[in-house]
């Protein structure tokens, strides 16, 4: 397992993505009326977010005809289409840490709902783009063909795979998952697989 710390400012985080996440659909940027609050929320995010990635490569195998790696079976059409031909599968768990969650709650409780909402939106995009940052780095270093980055919970990739991510990597980067819903804590955490084929 490799642990990679990422400097938040080094993540190329496009404003258009944040604007869209906040609901400014089609604008492509944060409107000037909200720029002040946005910049404040962005500054808080950059100070509080501690993006860290736990990453490990696995050799897949077939278990009773089902794709498997480590101790898990990866079922479903999404997994078959993206990971089926892989000679190696990368699993990654990315988190921003709990400080940003705490601040979102603190702002909400103080009645600063807009700031809380903006911080939440920035956090959601920051964790996504941190994963993308790692993803691009991996692709640039290999001659293998990379699949799409797929995450539990999307299409038919079972969300309970998050429990495996938490057990495998969680201790190293302070992430756990709810045993019933499989949501992660801290909340700004995402998991993903990338398959590598010849």
């Amino acid at each position: 397992m490799e642990i990679i710390q990422i400097v938040p400012n080094e993540v190329a985080l496009p404003e258009r993505a944040i604007a869209a996440r906040m609901g400014f659909k089609g604008l492509g940027s944060i409107p000037s009326e909200f720029r002040k609050q946005y910049e404040k929320a962005m500054s808080i995010s950059m100070n509080l977010a501690k993006p860290v990635v736990a990453i490990e490569n696995f050799v897949p195998y077939l278990s009773n005809g089902t794709l498997a790696m480590d101790t898990i079976e990866i079922k479903g059409t999404l997994a078959r289409s993206q990971l089926g031909k892989s000679v190696e599968i990368t699993a990654m768990l990315v988190t921003l840490g709990s400080a940003i969650d705490d601040k979102i709650t603190e702002l909400h409780e103080a009645g600063e709902e807009l700031e809380s909402f903006m911080l939440d939106a920035i956090g959601s995009e920051l964790v996504e783009y941190a994963a993308r940052h790692v993803d691009e780095n991996l692709r640039s270093k290999t001659s293998l063909k990379g699949s799409a980055r797929i995450a539990p919970g999307y299409v038919d990739l079972p969300i309970n795979l998050n429990a495996w991510f938490a057990s495998k990597f969680g201790e190293a980067i302070y992430v756990r998952s709810d045993p019933q819903s499989f949501t992660f804590l801290p909340r700004k955490t995402i998991s993903a697989f990338i398959g590598w084929s010849n």
């Binding site: 009645g111 709902e113 909402f117």
Partner: peptide, 15 residues
Amino acid sequence: IFLPQLILAAQTAQK
């Protein structure tokens, strides 16, 4: 209006 405007308006009116 967009969602942030709605939130801002609600937050403002609340007090």
